[in-house]
Design a protein around this nucleic acid. Structure first.
Lengths: 338, 338
DNA sequence: CTGAAAGCGCTTACAG
DNA sequence: CTGAAAGCGCTTACAG
């Protein structure tokens, strides 16, 4: 399990290459004023010893550690993990590492984790909120660049990147209209979420563009749960027996909706088409039929966030809010597979 | 966004307290041979300056950094996040931080991430596998203690802690027997998973203890999916129309099973009781009725793993395999709520 | 082109 | 009880 902890050190390399450690350092770091043959020799020795510079020592000088902290409050890891994967892609292997910490949606814990990250001298921070709505900016002075992902910061001076919820709603509606639906209901989540309103208004705008209105002339708000999806669908079918499509604010709501539709004897997608939101691997493809859903492209979101953070670390900070367009993933709940 | 990067340093504290930095260091670290009044003065100054020692500098000396790496291959974050939370609990706030990295189930990426973690001088590693089955040990020399969680290492010389799948299966069966069920079927996942066999054999052993056998005299293996749960349930009902309970290898399978039971006109739990496995927040409580499930106590698993790792870092390494008993969470799918 | 020296922030023997 | 000095591993002006 354990082994000799210490690897070779720069002075080992220097000694074996017959140069001073200053020269060895310069050679390895590509500084100028080193004879080519010397550089080569140093490299050979370094390779032979499989020398790896100690980033702690480097960091002590430069203040940079090649690490970035990703602080999440998303207990499920449902949004954070794809975002983290995207961030890792952007930073590339080896050079910069991304470390994820969980704040558990707790402001105190958030402080503690940030202190821990900061005391380890991360070069930057990506803050991933628990919900897509704007959140207050970090309540402390942060000496490194910060990027807010998924949940934007309320401070327009910060840089944030979030999913374009209006666009997501629009995509869902356009897809249904394009596939011939006209009697379309909207069932979405907790009215306390701005994202719920955004998705609904995007959908409604697209319907209006097609000359129609949502059933009941408004979206139905409730909760982000299957149970709400079931209940709202029952009510919707009772009020509008001729409905032919449902736009749902989340995959969980959509699952509940599909459940109730089946119970009420409506065939999916023949009688009623259903679109979800999140394109969650666990829920969407396994549904019966597989659920068409709006994908927020979280991995891409993470990639972009990391790119902005990297630029800020290098000195070019961004400000304001970027919105990443969504993508519709069509499946059997809206289109009968041949 | 940015600020004056550097905080106060030990020598700032020393200067303001009118002592040498050696004395300041000793005072702050509780070393002996420091007059009490001196210590107090140093502490006051440190507090006033909100001095935080630079762990990079400390680490350079001690070789310890107060960080632990948690390497996961669990893309969903479904198992890793609770384990990480448990580990954080065990380490307590502030002293040791846990950083999560994602290997994406890719051996090359695993190496890269470990190199990154190691070059940052983590004090130890927790390896969380993607599936509960034994996995090969890390393919390289690791100079720090390692603990395998969830997926045990194949090397008995390593220390691993995993969920007691046999016990989980047993709990499910005992619960059903205790609530009066006798015609019990077992539908579980991919036969390539040892965990599937373990859960099934635990359940069968408990049934045997009660003097009964599972329907069809064996567990039905298939896949970890809703679709398999649906299909297997249809077959099970056809073959054993008098069944009164189903033990499922995962919550997803259970959800599929419940779906099919309802479709076949069986009331849950009156006609047929259903037990899942994982107690997954997303699927279990929202089911109709809420799903009784086996909880693997992943957070506790993380806590224990961290405890062992900490002990190993302190010099007391463990070896072999610990199995954490499961916990049954009863809900409406097995017990009619009053 | 090369190396001696100072220094990043801290800790630890070792003298006083 | 207190402090000057050396050193952890590296980089960076500054002399040669």
């Amino acid at each position: 399990m354990t082994d000799n902890r210490k690897g070779p050190t720069l002075s080992d390399v220097a000694r074996m290459a017959g140069v001073s450690i200053a020269t060895a350092s310069k050679a390895l770091n590509g500084r100028e004023h080193v004879r080519e043959s010397t550089r080569q020799r140093v490299f050979q020795v370094a390779e032979a010893l499989s020398f790896v510079p100690n980033p702690l020592a480097q960091g002590l000088l430069s203040g940079q550690t090649g690490t970035v902290g990703l602080l999440t409050s998303d207990l499920e890891g449902r949004f954070s993990i794809p975002i983290m994967m995207g961030a890792e892609d952007a930073f590339g292997a080896g050079s910069t590492s991304v470390f994820l910490c969980d704040a558990r949606g707790d402001a105190i814990r958030e402080r503690t984790q940030i202190q821990a990250l900061l005391s380890r001298h991360v070069d930057g921070l990506i803050i991933v909120g628990a919900r897509p709505d704007p959140r207050p900016p970090l309540a402390m002075r942060i000496p490194v660049p910060v990027v807010y992902a998924y949940a934007p910061s309320e401070d327009p001076n910060d840089y944030s990147i979030t999913s374009d919820n209006v666009h997501g709603g629009r995509l869902a509606a356009e897809h249904l209209v394009a596939t011939g639906r006209r009697r379309i209901g909207i069932i979405t989540g907790d009215p306390g979420y701005g994202a719920a309103h955004d998705r609904a208004s995007g959908a409604i705008a697209a319907l209006n563009d097609a000359g129609i209105s949502p059933l009941g002339d408004a979206a139905q708000f409730g909760a982000w749960s299957e149970a709400w999806g079931r209940g709202a669908t029952h009510a919707m079918v009772a009020a509008h027996p001729d409905l032919d499509a449902l736009i749902c604010g989340s995959d969980q709501i959509a699952r509940g909706a599909m459940d109730s539709l089946r119970e009420l004897g409506r065939e999916i997608p023949d009688d009623v088409a259903v679109v979800g939101h999140d394109n969650w691997e666990v829920l969407a493809p396994g549904a019966r039929p597989p659920l068409t859903s709006i994908d927020m492209r979280l991995q891409e979101l993470g990639r972009l966030a990391a790119g902005k953070l990297f630029a800020a670390i290098e000195g070019t900070a961004s400000h304001g809010l970027d919105k990443l367009p969504c993508r519709l993933v069509p499946r059997g709940s809206t289109i009968r597979s041949s």
